[in-house]
Simulated assay, not measured.
Amino acid sequence: MLGSLTDLDLRLIRVFLAVVDAGGISVAQTTLNVGQPTISTQLSTLETRLGYRLCERGRSGFRLTSRGERFYELGKKLFEAVDEFSSNARNMDRKLVGTLNIGLIGHTPVSQNARISQAIASFRERDEAVRFSISVRSPGELEEHLLSGQIQIAVGYFWHRVPTLDYAPLFSEQQIAYCGRGHPLFERSGRLDASTVADFEWAWRTYPLPEVQLSTTPGKVTAQADNMEAVSLLILSGHHLGYLPRHFADPYVKQGLLAALNPEVLRYEVTFHVVTQARGRQNPIVTAFLEDLTTAHLPANDES
């Protein structure tokens, strides 16, 4: 069993992480720039020093043991901490030093992505040495990652409120009901009323959106999807009606593949929020970035 970590131990752990990330020893040869026998020997040495097997490897392929899975997660955290320490040590004289993990929901309007980019640019003008890490997740995953500390800031729409998280409105997105070119309503689209469209089959999100009034009965919702790309495929099939963000649907409308049922009536607004842990605002990096993000979304910066 490992006692105090040595340089050798750290090198062996890095090899193990590289093999797991590559999905096996043969693929990891390119990443590590060493031969398969050397990698196998290094893994065996690490297992001997640990006193247990990390992975099964051979003709049947590469597979982590249960201990190997846990050790992999520990190893990642170890080197994340090492990187954080190195960054802090190199930038001791900077006011803001560390990592900022941001989670976003996919396919936000281009204008809003530009504002997030503007906030990043403003933040980079500060006296900082911060490493940005940005990921795209579903609303539920964003909240989970906030609660677990995997991210510090999330931007998206959320249908419930977690007491330990802070939600601040950022901007609104318009959702409109559409049909595909092969749908019976396609040629009549534009001024259809709610009673006419209610009897057709709909595609719906797997998560609730509190701003929307149900446009049909639950029995007519015959398809569900957890993201707008999947919903769009169902609508494009010509069999289902469904809601999509206007900015997302516009290219399909211009190609004649989608048509809005009645953009004056069958629509709703979704409010996007920036979310942090309640105590997260005490983090100077988070506080600084929220200031820049808020400034980027001020009316004076509205180009529309």
Score class of each variant (00 low, 15 high):
Leu2Asn: 09
Asp7Phe: 05
Leu10Ser: 08
Leu12Glu: 00
Val15Arg: 01
Ala18Ser: 15
Val20Gly: 02
Asp21His: 07
Ile25His: 00
Ala28Leu: 02
Leu32Arg: 01
Ile39Pro: 01
Thr41Ser: 07
Gln42Cys: 05
Leu43Arg: 01
Ser44Val: 08
Arg49Asp: 10
Arg53Pro: 00
Arg53Asn: 07
Cys55Trp: 01
Arg59Cys: 04
Gly61Ile: 12
Gly68Arg: 06
Arg70Phe: 11
Phe71Tyr: 13
Phe71Val: 08
Gly75Ser: 14
Phe79Met: 07
Glu80Ala: 14
Ala81Ile: 06
Val82Cys: 12
Arg90Ile: 09
Met92Gln: 14
Ile102Ser: 00
Leu104Met: 13
Gln112Ala: 15
Gln112Gly: 06
Ala114Met: 15
Arg115Glu: 09
Ile120Asp: 05
Glu125Ile: 08
Val130Ser: 06
Val136Thr: 15
Arg137Val: 05
Gly140Leu: 12
Gly140His: 09
Leu142Trp: 00
Glu143Pro: 00
His145Cys: 08
Leu147Thr: 02
Ser148Gln: 13
Gln150Met: 07
Gln152Arg: 08
Ile153Asn: 00
Tyr157Ser: 07
Trp159Lys: 04
Trp159Tyr: 14
Trp159Cys: 05
Arg161Leu: 08
Ala177Gln: 04
Gly180Lys: 03
Phe186Thr: 02
Phe186Lys: 04
Ser195Tyr: 07
Asp199Lys: 06
Glu201Arg: 09
Glu201Lys: 06
Ala203Thr: 11
Trp204Ser: 09
Pro208Leu: 03
Val221Ser: 04
Thr222Leu: 15
Ala223Arg: 14
Ser232Tyr: 02
Leu234Gly: 01
Ser237Ile: 09
His239Met: 11
Leu241His: 02
Leu241Thr: 01
Arg246Lys: 13
His247Ala: 12
Ala249Arg: 00
Ala249His: 02
Ala249Cys: 07
Asp250Cys: 06
Pro251Leu: 08
Asn262Pro: 06
Asn262Ile: 07
Val265Met: 08
Tyr268His: 15
Glu269Ser: 11
Val275Asn: 01
Gln282Ala: 14
Asn283Arg: 03
Ala288Pro: 01
Leu290His: 00
Leu298His: 10
Ala300Glu: 14
Glu303Trp: 14
